[in-house]
């Protein structure tokens, strides 16, 4: 089995109003070193191994559903896990 960890964030060029609000709260609690906050989503997919190209499959899922390429970027990590 594969465990795929997908991270989705707003693109650098897109303003993240939630991140901005959180940053100003962090500043209010005295964390003045914080320069930027970006809020995103984290997804964990568990996949059966098979006769397929894993990267192709993940890219397909990420670009068609898990992220919206107009405003979001994604990256992912793959771990091999033993089925329980």
């Amino acid at each position: 089995m594969y465990k795929v960890k997908v991270y989705v964030t707003l693109r650098e060029s897109v303003l993240d109003p939630q991140g901005k609000a959180v940053m100003s709260s962090l500043h209010k609690m005295g964390q003045s070193e914080v320069e930027d906050v970006r809020i995103g989503k984290y997804l964990e997919l568990t996949l059966q191994k098979g006769d397929y190209n894993l990267d192709e499959k993940i890219v397909n899922m990420c670009s068609k559903l898990l992220s919206n390429p107009v405003i979001e970027d994604y990256r992912y990590e793959v771990e091999e896990v033993v089925a329980q």
């Binding site: 707003l10 897109v14 303003l15 109003p17 939630q18 609000a21 919206n68 107009v70 405003i71």
Partner: peptide, 11 residues
């Protein structure tokens, strides 16, 4: 349609 929606600026 082209484009995407973001949260309102005011949240």
């Amino acid at each position: 349609l082209p484009g995407a929606m973001r949260r309102n600026e005011s949240l």
